[in-house]
Simulated scan of single mutants.
Amino acid sequence: MPALFSMFRPARRQFDDLSAQEVLSLAILAEEEDGRIYAAYAANLAKDYPASAAMFDAMAAEENEHRSALLDLYVRRFGPTIIPIRREHVEGFYARKPLWLVKSLPLERARADAADMERQAEAFYRLAASRSTDAETRKLLGDLAAAEAKHERKALSLEGELTTGDEGKAEQDQAKRQFVLTWVQPGLAGLMDGSVSTLAPIFATAFATQNPWTTFLIGLSASIGAGISMGFTEAAHDDGKLSGRGSPWKRGLASGVMTTIGGLGHALPYLIPHFWTATAIALCVVFVELWVIVWIQNRFMETPIGRAMFQIILGGLLVLATGILIGGA
């Protein structure tokens, strides 16, 4: 079977088999791509993280300078026609994320990826320089390797400066706020809904039937149904453009998944065939779920611990008691 697939897969060149012309072509196109990636980072971060955006703009400009130097050397040696060889044509050559994906990377990931990109580019230039027999080409590739190493250190040092300086602290605060708005807030709402709203139907079924399997099926359907409903509701009611709450599909995913988890937490124990054992474990799970919600509210939403306990634990216990009373009636 692997041999069959290999028949339809484009052949990839070994780096050692590339000619000097092909190596320079590869370097030119790689610098162009890296420059576009850094420009995309800058555009994505410009509104909320101007200091980091300026760093990426500067790196994009430096990549363009590298491309110009390589292009000048190529034209002098081989003429104006660039061989269309790309990273994916060379076996084992480092890859880059698609441009549409890098545009949506969060701040910390973008900074870390930039340092990694520079490290990979340095390794490429050092290897290419070691294979070159032309003195001018060898010198340029060696200089570019040193420049990429310097850029990697610069990216890491700038990251440190941006983390500790006033601008960096402001950006870190903004990143934290965005994380809370996009992931924590809808996820917490989903967890609360899944954990609390499913208590009554699950425990009402449990005490009405005393059948663990039936209770599990009711809990499973209630949890998944609530998750789907919460996820679509969160994604549909706010596109995030005016509210600044971030991507609707991210918020919908967080809300839907956490809603489902919240309900499944006290439904899964009813896979145990012994009713009272399953119920005892389910009640313990409910207690843990409610305390987790209290901790998240206190940790990320800065809700005073007393108020969070009153709202969540008291409300959850009332819903739980309602389900038990109705089921046992």
Rank of each mutant, 00 (worst) to 15 (best):
T279M: 07
L271F: 01
V294M: 06
V294S: 05
P248V: 01
S221Q: 04
T214A: 14
I281L: 12
R251T: 11
F203C: 01
T303G: 00
V292H: 04
L268S: 00
H237N: 07
I281P: 02
N298H: 15
I281A: 05
H237Y: 08
K241Q: 15
F207R: 08
G263C: 03
G240L: 13
A278E: 00
W249E: 12
K241F: 10
S223D: 04
G252R: 10
G262S: 05
G246L: 11
A280K: 02
L290K: 02
G227T: 12
F287K: 07
A278Q: 02
L220I: 06
G256T: 13
R245S: 15
G265S: 04
T279C: 04
L220G: 06
H266R: 00
G231A: 11
I293T: 05
S229Q: 04
V286N: 09
G263V: 01
M258T: 14
P304D: 14
G244S: 12
V257L: 15
L253M: 15
E302A: 10
S223F: 04
M230A: 15
D238H: 07
L217W: 15
T277K: 00
V288S: 13
A278R: 01
R299H: 11
G219L: 00
W291R: 07
I261P: 05
E302H: 14
S255V: 02
M301L: 09
L268Q: 01
M301S: 02
L253Q: 08
